[in-house]
Design a protein around this nucleic acid. Structure first.
Lengths: 146, 146
DNA sequence: TCCTTATTGATACATGGTATCAATAAGGTA
DNA sequence: TACCTTATTGATACCATGTATCAATAAGGA
């Protein structure tokens, strides 16, 4: 169910196309977010970044996180541990699932849900432009262990 | 679509049953949250509360908000303005809709969605215990004006 | 290689939320 | 009703997370 096809190179390309200069901090942070299986906060990303790049500034990381979010490359997780963690965005629109036991983020096909939403738009007169759709629980691994 | 049946008296009852003493701050805050059409933050609730009760303490309001949330009487809105706003919880499980134009919160029937989720549980081996389901866009009023 | 300028990192600051603790007031009891 | 115990409150100080500022640095075109 977790078929992530995230290519850090594409992220760099997206950044360049947004008109910024390519720096080593960017590459470091892109790598961190693109490869983490767990939602990361800016603070956590900062800590990870300094392991390989000790002088990395805190503000810089916060700025990068904001930029990555604005470009749609990472996506905020609205969870129990707060709302300041991020996961990579998949190319397709997918629903997030967070395992409360192991903390991992999984992506679920949200097509049926999208259909449902589109249907309701017609009948209600509302116009839906964005959604925040997340599920919490136990992933199948953790479910089996329990 | 917005059929709110919230009774402040029930909230007081719920508080009492949770084993706390009934105070005037509680009544003030319950009234504020139960009657607001817009999601309110603790800070906003504090400001409103002080209009009728000037000496109300900030920490007290934060404490009450936490208590009301724990009792399930109010519910956190995960939105664009941050994740620190709250709306009254309806007796039934409903999906939240926030109008990005007027800011009002509406409640949508989430039964079809619940069915969908339950279905996916069977096929995936996951166990879903909680969900964060919110939609954003323009309500039918704002949609017509545009 | 040089030069311009976006980006960075250090610092100070703002905001949102929490811990502490003496003063207050609920509400049971005599 | 007055009293007493103790939960709750409000003021303050505090902490954590995020943002503004600005001189120093480094991208990358000329």
């Amino acid at each position: 169910m977790r078929s992530r096809t995230i290519n850090p190179k594409d992220w760099l390309t997206a950044l360049v196309e947004s008109g910024v200069r390519v720096t080593t901090v960017q590459e470091t942070l892109i790598d961190i977010f693109a490869h983490s299986e767990y939602p990361l906060s800016a603070e956590q990303a900062w800590n990870v970044a300094r392991q390989s790049r000790p002088k990395t500034g805190r503000a810089t990381v916060y700025r990068m996180v904001e930029k990555l979010e604005n470009l749609g490359l990472i996506r905020r997780v609205h969870g129990y541990q707060g709302c300041s963690h991020f996961v990579p965005t998949l190319p397709e629109l997918m629903m997030l699932f967070i395992c409360l036991s192991c903390g991992r983020a999984e992506y679920l096909d949200s097509q049926p849900l999208d259909d449902l939403i589109q249907q309701s738009e017609h009948t209600s007169g509302r116009h839906i432009t964005d959604s925040r759709l997340q599920l919490f629980g136990a992933c199948s691994d953790c479910q089996q262990k329990a």
